[in-house]
């Protein structure tokens, strides 16, 4: 599904983002990517969705070779990936419904599809009653669920969550993780980048640990162990 082959990313100021990263994620896996801030988790995700180009190495995503995509193909790739961020990235002037619908509009999908799929996906994240609320009328956990709904609207093969619980309290964090697990049970591959030790240890799934741009540990049923 996802394969990094000897990938390095060195920034112009010679700061090392990633150093010789290789790993494979199979379809249907739930992988946690852990490490301190600055360990390279976000860089790795940016490379995976083509926002930045690697200095060296190859990145495969399904049939795509991400580091060689042109911008027209890039948008197709991004429709097969759902992305969730720590800061939600919802549009403040759109309601929950419109924020989710926006992802379909951008892809040029017809209104009939929007009317059918958006309520379904809002139902799935447990927010059917808040569809007409604006982001500032929603709690942090609710906002993140809208963001997950938006990520899921294209039925992506992979959901990437970059510190999705970073701005949430424990209870809301747990709910979000449960939601991600449910998405994973439905067959979607999940890549969760986090530095929340408790969450990772509870998951008992595969853990890739990063330090200073390198992978130091990659274990199934892993734990959050960073020296």
């Amino acid at each position: 599904m996802i394969q990094f082959i000897n990938v390095s990313k060195i920034y112009e100021n010679r700061a090392v983002g990633l150093e010789d990263i290789s790993f494979t994620i199979k379809p249907g896996e739930f992988v946690s990517l852990v490490g301190r801030s600055g360990a390279g988790k976000s860089t790795l995700i940016k490379l995976l969705i083509g926002e930045e180009k690697p200095t060296k190495g190859r990145i495969l995503f399904g049939a795509y070779e991400v580091n060689k995509l042109r911008s027209t193909e890039m948008s197709q790739l991004r429709r097969q990936v759902g992305i969730v961020f720590q800061d939600f990235r919802l549009l403040a002037n759109k309601t929950a419904f419109e924020n989710v619908a926006f992802a379909l509009e951008v892809g040029g999908r017809p209104q009939s599809e929007i009317d059918e799929f958006v309520p379904q996906v809002l139902e799935m994240v447990g927010l059917p009653s808040k569809r007409n609320h604006f982001p500032n009328q929603l709690s942090g956990g609710e906002k993140q669920r809208v963001a997950i709904a938006r990520a899921m609207i294209h039925h992506p093969a992979v959901v990437i969550a970059d510190e999705p619980t970073g701005n949430l309290d424990d209870i809301n964090s747990e709910e979000i993780i449960k939601l991600l697990l449910r998405i994973n049970e439905l067959g979607t591959t999940v890549l969760l980048a986090t530095h929340n030790k408790e969450i990772v240890n509870k998951l008992k799934r595969r853990v890739i640990s990063m330090v200073d741009g390198r992978i130091v540990r990659d274990e199934p049923n892993g734990k959050y162990i960073i020296m």
């Binding site: 197709q76 951008v106 892809g107």
Partner: peptide
């Protein structure tokens, strides 16, 4: 820029 960033994120095509 926020809206544009999100468009890119959810796979808005170049021309869109």
């Amino acid at each position: 820029r926020d809206e544009i960033g999100i468009m890119r994120l959810v796979g808005g095509s170049n021309m869109f």
